[in-house]
């Protein structure tokens, strides 16, 4: 599904990603953890096509295609979804209008006709129920005045609407209360199919109790410094990152 090979990227000339390689197969859930500022969101930004991150080296292949040469909206329509760490407010633009535009763009890309108004509203209702998002939220403007947790739930709702092949969730769990966390996790589990994949960026093991990852990576200083099974998350929760930092330093010294 996704093959990242020796990816290096800078932001305003500063090296942020320093050679990342990663392979995600269909149906897999990868968790990415790592201390603040290590480059997790930057990696997500590169995958989604954010312009301010400049890729200086490496390749990213998605479904056999060169991802880096695609525009952000092409990537989206090809099935890449980014759940933003900080979702953006768009005043005056109703969720209905926003999602209708997005869904129909996806459909057009697949050669399908736009949904009729009633079919669209039906789809919206279905997905709202599926991810247990408050009906009222979906009637408001995009993220406008939403609480932090509501914004995150809204990301999951949008994901459910767009049915991505590869969803990258950037700290969708932070700021959520326990119930919301369960809702978000359930949303992911309901959407999960053998042919779609997830990259879940998180700081907390507790999310991984609900969304069980196949692989856990630790990103530190722009590199993936450790990759293991889900037990790694538990270990990190217990011991923090210091031991990893030490390991890294030792390996550099050695």
């Amino acid at each position: 599904m996704l093959v990242i090979n020796n990816l290096k990227a800078t932001i305003s000339g500063k090296n942020i990603l320093k050679g990342i390689s990663l392979k995600v197969k269909p149906g897999e859930i990868h968790a990415i953890m790592g201390p603040n500022g290590s480059g997790k969101s930057t990696l997500a930004a590169v995958l989604a096509g954010r312009e301010f991150v400049e890729v200086t080296e490496g390749t990213v292949t998605y479904l056999g295609k060169d991802l880096l040469s695609m525009s952000p909206e092409e990537r989206a329509k090809e099935g890449i979804f980014l759940g933003f760490q900080y979702p953006i407010e768009i005043p005056g633009v109703s969720m209905v209008n926003f999602m209708k535009t997005a869904v129909n763009e996806h459909r057009k890309h697949k050669g399908l006709d736009p949904l009729s108004a009633s079919d669209f509203l039906k789809l919206m209702r279905e997905k709202k129920e599926m991810v247990e998002i408050d009906s009222k939220l979906a009637n408001r403007s995009v993220n406008e005045g939403f609480s932090g947790g509501e914004k995150k739930k809204n990301e999951i709702f949008q994901m459910a609407m767009l049915e991505p092949r590869l969803a990258i969730l950037d700290e969708t769990d932070s700021g959520l209360d326990i119930d919301a966390l369960r809702i978000v996790a359930n949303g992911v589990n309901k959407i999960k199919r053998p042919d779609n994949s997830f990259i879940v960026i998180t700081h907390y093991q507790r999310l991984l109790d609900y969304i069980v990852p196949d692989v856990v990576h630790v990103l530190y200083d722009g590199r993936i410094v450790k990759t293991a099974g889900k037990e790694l998350a538990l270990e990190l929760e217990e011991k923090g990152y210091d031991w990893i930092k030490k390991e890294v330093e030792n390996s550099i010294l050695a």
């Binding site: 525009s71 909206e73 933003f84 953006i88 999602m99």
Partner: peptide, 14 residues
């Protein structure tokens, strides 16, 4: 904001 536009882009909107 570029952020707003990118948010739309990321949902498949040009």
């Amino acid at each position: 904001g570029e952020d707003q536009i990118f948010y739309c882009n990321q949902r498949g909107i040009s």
